[in-house]
């Protein structure tokens, strides 16, 4: 998930595992070109690790790649979405806390991302599945405050209350509200049950898709009580042209 250079040529790794949650360990000599570990322990790789117990941290003694997700390394948007889903998975994990379903979801998402024609759709699907897996599935059928059935009209989403608010209940209260039109709510409902294939195939109007992204991101930030760092770069590479430096890259 993350790594940091330590010592002469070692790396400190944060690894997500199915049965021990996040594990911190060191890979000795991994930065040397001829290291047997180096190529296998890059970010976003599915590997089998053998760990040897150390005084404070475990050390990687052997590593074998199960999948290197090569396509993520040659496509900027896929690499950014991969970093984003990995960060989300890490934030929902704890050291020592087994969570095999979350691990399977992450590996499955990264595998699908390799061949995905719509990486951003896959990210929305991952967000919703992660919320479902963690017990934070948002209420999208009735008003989360009064329980009234939602009409086919624009509503708002409240992260604090975990669902959609009807026009009567949106008045008052100090929640941060995100607009959610009828098309957005329909797409969010679809994400609750859709598999990767169906998410890739469905066509969603641009504004509904972007609005659903804003709803899910606001809700995730609230649930995690933490900003998600990789969203800044994901937004940057999703822009066309690359706006941050657009004045400098315009020919002539």
């Amino acid at each position: 998930m993350r790594q940091r250079d330590i010592g002469e040529a070692d790396r400190l790794l944060w690894v997500i595992t199915p049965d021990r949650g996040i594990v911190r360990c060191t890979a000795r000599g991994a930065r040397k070109p001829a290291s047997k570990l180096g190529g296998h322990i890059d970010l976003l790789r599915h590997v089998t690790l053998s760990l040897r117990s150390g005084r404070s941290l475990d050390h990687v003694s052997q590593v074998e790649t199960i999948s290197g997700f090569r396509e993520l390394r040659s496509d900027l948007v896929k690499a950014s979405v991969g970093s984003y889903v990995a960060e989300l998975a890490e934030r929902f994990s704890v050291e020592g806390g087994a969570n095999p379903p979350l691990f399977r979801l992450l590996v499955s998402a990264l595998g699908r991302l390799e061949s995905s024609a719509r990486p951003q759709s896959l990210a929305r699907c991952f967000e919703m599945r992660l919320l479902s897996l963690s017990g934070f599935l948002p209420e999208l059928e009735v008003c989360v405050e009064c329980g009234a059935r939602l009409a086919e009209s624009p509503h708002v989403f409240s992260s604090e209350r975990g669902g959609i608010l009807c026009p009567q209940c949106r008045v008052g209260g100090g929640d941060v509200l995100v607009p959610a039109g009828a098309g957005t709510i329909k797409f969010l409902r679809f994400l609750r049950t859709a598999d990767w294939d169906r998410v890739e195939r469905i066509g969603v109007p641009g504004e509904d898709f972007r609005q659903a992204g804003r709803v899910l991101r606001a809700y995730l930030r609230y649930v995690l009580d933490h900003s998600i760092r990789s969203t800044a770069f994901l937004d940057e590479v999703s822009r066309r042209p690359v706006s941050k430096f657009v004045d400098q890259v315009r020919p002539g």
Binding site: D42, L76, A79, F245, V249, R250, P251
Partner: peptide, 20 residues
Amino acid sequence: PNLEGEATGMYLQRLIAPLG
């Protein structure tokens, strides 16, 4: 030649490409 280095390279390539 790791994920972050490759992403940086791809990003720069995208910026420099329009300059010919």
